Amino acid sequence: MPKIVVGVSGSLGCLAALHRAAAEARLRRAELWAVLAWETPGGELGGRYSAHVSAVAQCRATAGDRLREALDTAFGPVRPEIPVQGVTVWGSPGAALVDVAQDPDDLLVVGTGARGPLRRLVHRSVARYCQTHAVCPVLAVPPSPLLATYDTTHRRNLWHMPLDPREVV
């Protein structure tokens, strides 16, 4: 059975990717795999050489909670009419998604996220990594326009700037 693999980060931006992946899974009669990648604090070295095995177990449990919360936020208590598999993977997001979507018949769905100049310097693009390394087709889903409006409103509230209701509409 072909699968639709979608990256989940727990952010608001991943909701558009989850909904698009669910729609693709319905159309293709495929299974939906929601994948959340997690890393220990300190990256690979922090997890490999850590004497605190309980810290790694705690990170794994937190990742599972974030995945369940993201699926509940996206779909509510009623899951879509398709099989949904939640998977947490230890590793960087791009590599984890490419590893799960190994079959050429799979479809990998990733959110593009907001990519301002500062963010590009600090964080690598998961979508670009997947497009470069995946053996299956990759569908890059842009964030919802409502997310940009939300971010603008949130920023204005943080800086205590007056908000004109006509700008929100």
Rank of each mutant, 00 (worst) to 15 (best):
P2A: 13
K3C: 03
V5K: 01
G7I: 08
V8W: 01
L12R: 10
L15W: 05
A16M: 03
A17C: 05
A17T: 10
A17R: 04
L18R: 01
H19Q: 12
H19F: 00
H19C: 01
A23C: 02
A23L: 06
E24N: 01
R26V: 13
L27P: 00
R28W: 06
E31N: 01
L32V: 09
A34F: 04
L36G: 03
L36I: 08
W38I: 09
E39T: 12
T40L: 01
G42H: 02
L45G: 14
R48L: 15
S50I: 09
A51F: 11
A51C: 08
H52P: 03
S54V: 12
S54E: 14
A55T: 11
R60N: 08
G64H: 07
R68D: 04
E69S: 09
E69H: 09
A70F: 06
T73K: 12
G76L: 05
P77Q: 13
V78T: 11
R79N: 01
P80K: 02
P80S: 06
P80Y: 02
V84E: 00
Q85K: 12
G86A: 15
T88Y: 01
S92E: 15
A95I: 08
A95Q: 14
L97Y: 08
V98S: 07
V100F: 01
V100S: 01
Q102M: 05
Q102N: 12
D106T: 09
L108H: 11
G113P: 09
A114G: 14
A114K: 11
A114W: 08
R115H: 06
R119D: 11
R124S: 15
A127K: 07
Y129T: 13
Q131S: 12
A134E: 02
C136L: 05
P137Y: 03
A140F: 09
V141C: 03
P142N: 06
P143L: 15
P143F: 11
L146S: 14
L147R: 11
L147E: 08
A148P: 07
A148Q: 15
H154K: 10
W159N: 11
R166T: 15
R166M: 07
V168P: 00
